[in-house]
Design a protein around this nucleic acid. Structure first.
Lengths: 204, 204
DNA sequence: ATTTTCGTGATACGAACGTACCACGTAGAT
DNA sequence: ATCTACGTGGTACGTTCGTATCACGAAAAT
């Protein structure tokens, strides 16, 4: 029944199948046939909507970045109405931790892509490398404003603190991913270090 | 000239060729034939000394871990005779940063193996996952002793600080690897955070 | 001196991969 | 009503991969 079909939606569906299959098998092991089977379509269709595997991989990565961004926003929104800078930053940092299946897949595939980008220039040129820069700029700005409001311990360098915290979050996420530590302990470590940046809230 | 040959040495040579080839092509893309060519031997010999690719990969990983351990020791030794805890910890943390070709390869392949271990149980069972735990125990012990000696800011939690610093070092290393930041700025971030743990040395 | 074992080369095999090709039915255009 | 373009299936092709097989020369053992 070849009715007219929404290409964008179809591509998104297939890309989601790619992400699911890659989360299960590992990005290195997933093939066009796996994606087709996961999406419930024929191999030909995957070829039809993405001309090559490389295009599929690139699109899947973009899709992943978008979905991750949405997750972070949701996390921040869930921190409550009008959250303070500490809450926003903590939500941002813990969003990267693999606490459930979805975030595990995020971290797993993101790291896979990062590794691939070391030897694949098409991936390295992709703007997903830029995402951490944006996150760092955001956290730095939040910290700077918090410092101006007197919420931080004196002598805090917003840029250095932001870079360190984000790197720590990424590193802890990997530790959780490979089973080295639990998600709870990773969150606790993050909270400890935030306590070393933000001064205790003044009593009412 | 089939004289008797030292199997151990031969395996080490081939494993080093694996590491070189994987550093160039990416671990996902390296095949038995690439390793053979890199080592300057025939494909048959790689098969002969390692029965399967999986065995080769496992051995290459162990080799990598050993070489990395040696590198860390050398870094600490280079910190001077009778170095203080801060110097030892800083050497330990910066050893993971990809500052030159060799450490780039270390970080690249270590991360590759970590990603593979998520979906490969044979790799996950490998003790290289345990290395970060050992490093964390070492840094924690160093920090605890430093705290007892009054070298740290009061209120420092050695375990949480050690976990955070190591995760930060790993995360910064990945950032350097993918070209997000320079090795110098990573080292600076690390130094900044160490300054938030170690009190300034008292004057003479 | 003969036999056995070891190191090595060349090559072949079956599987899996990404891609290309061919066929066909249906929906919209004319 | 005819034609054209789109969506889809099936399948074949060429390559590459890990692995297995065959052959052979030289050292060691007997």
């Amino acid at each position: 029944m070849p009715r007219r079909v929404d290409h964008g939606e179809r591509r998104a569906e297939i890309a989601k199948a790619l992400v699911r299959a890659a989360g299960r098998l590992g990005l290195h092991a997933v093939g066009m046939r796996d994606v087709a089977a996961e999406a419930g379509v024929s191999l030909r269709l995957v070829q039809y909507y993405f001309e090559s595997k490389e295009k599929l991989l690139l699109f899947g990565l973009q899709q992943l970045a978008v979905r991750f961004g949405e997750r972070v926003s949701a996390r921040i929104a869930a921190a409550g109405p009008d959250p303070g800078p500490r809450e926003v930053i903590e939500a941002l940092l813990t969003a990267a931790l693999p606490v459930d299946a979805e975030s595990r897949t995020f971290h797993h595939l993101y790291t896979s892509y990062a590794v691939l980008s070391v030897t694949d220039e098409a991936l390295a040129a992709q703007p997903f490398i830029k995402d951490p820069d944006a996150a760092e700029a955001t956290v730095t700005a939040l910290l700077r404003r918090a410092a101006d409001a007197g919420l931080l311990f004196p002598g805090t360098d917003p840029a250095a603190a932001a870079a360190g915290l984000l790197a720590m979050s990424a590193g802890l996420g990997t530790g959780v991913l490979v089973g080295q530590r639990s998600a709870e302990s990773a969150a606790a470590v993050l909270a400890y270090h935030l306590d070393r940046v933000f001064r205790p809230a003044a009593g009412p």
